[in-house]
Design a protein around this nucleic acid. Structure first.
Lengths: 203, 203
DNA sequence: TAATTGTAATGACGCGGTGTCATTTTGTCA
DNA sequence: TGACAAAATGACACCGCGTCATTACAATTA
């Protein structure tokens, strides 16, 4: 979290700093992000940066949190709406994320973030809290499991885990030159495979 | 690729350098790996490092390649053996990788690599070539597709893509304190979901 | 208005790691 | 033994980092 000093700044100055930061974060993966460049872009003194933030990770987490929270709220609502259908909830999540992250003037920034997402969970970059297993399990009771092959809670977690990783991967592909339409079709097909299986039913 | 100078070194010295490197790569994610530490561990001069390798990425790629090639050969054979069953091939891949990377004295090294694997493909770290879509497609003709819901090549790629990402994720979990047995059971269950679907068949 | 006090901004500084390169050492062959 | 190429070495200049003593500013009080 940014320090109080930053939060007290005028809206204008805050934006200037955040824009400078996004520009730098869009340039290279976080390890290569240079605080020197950020303070130069933002026209603040080097020391000021450390008066505002603990580190570049702190700053990035703040920027991401704003975006994640927004999606988070929407997805929570969607889960309530689609009560009974995890798959629809994930498709909605996909659409929300594409809308927010791909169709965006700050595309390059988000591209950098998504492309460099790690397979591991612990990282800073797990953007959307509500789809982390420890959170989604909260919704377990709510989902309609009668039509699904779910016996124990753990089954549900395994399924969410697959949905998670497939959805994230599908988003990443949007940043890799493939057309948005193509990506979505492929994603829907994958969801379908998950729902009904890859092996043909015997007639 | 290492420079010729390195390859010409005595086996003993090469091993000393590689061991020093693995030790350092096991310590922290690659961005934080310090060449200073490597040369100190290996007891060579700083300048020598650059006589041997272009960069730390170059060195890491070399170490990984050795391991990847080994798995690669085995998995190719398995694909021929299990002709007709992509799923079995991936389960074998999983087992091979767990054996090679988890049950290993160099566990910490591989842990660091896997934990920091990126969701994106372009990266250095795509260890096993034969499961990259552009490679697996070569096996397309070989697989028995009659029992699968596959109409076009692209369907096959989408399926491999899911298998890929689920398998990798399952490996990662082995490094996260979960028991090996538990991880394997969960993985097999996920493969089952993929094969037969999550939604119950109507009787 | 001037004095006081607390808060924010500043940039010079020491630190540590980087990649280079001129020099030295080693090894080989006439 | 000398001459030559290949390899090893570590001092060096460079760069970005995080800190911190100092300065600037704003608000409060007399």
């Amino acid at each position: 979290m940014p320090k109080e000093t930053f939060l007290k700044l005028s809206e204008e100055k805050k934006q200037k700093v955040l824009n400078a930061a996004k520009r730098e974060f869009a340039r290279v993966p976080i390890e290569q992000v240079s605080i020197k460049n950020i303070v130069e872009n933002a026209e603040i003194a080097r020391g000021s940066f450390y008066q505002y933030f603990e580190s570049k990770e702190d700053l990035l987490a703040y920027i991401l949190k704003e975006n994640a929270d927004e999606i988070d709220t929407k997805i929570k609502n969607k889960i309530y709406e689609t009560k009974g259908d995890v798959f629809d909830a994930y498709i909605e999540l996909y659409d929300l994320m594409v809308k927010k992250f791909v169709e965006n003037t700050e595309q390059e920034f988000f591209k950098q973030i998504f492309i460099n997402l790690r397979l591991s969970d612990e990282s800073l970059f797990t953007l959307i809290k509500s789809v982390k297993p420890q959170n989604i399990i909260k919704y377990f009771e709510m989902f309609d499991k009668t039509s699904l092959k779910i016996n124990v809670k753990n089954d549900f977690i395994l399924i969410c885990d697959m949905l998670n990783v497939i959805t994230r991967r599908a988003i990443v592909k949007n940043f890799k030159g493939n057309s948005q339409e193509e990506c979505r079709q492929n994603f829907l097909k994958q969801i379908d495979y998950l729902k009904y299986g890859i092996i043909k039913k015997e007639e």
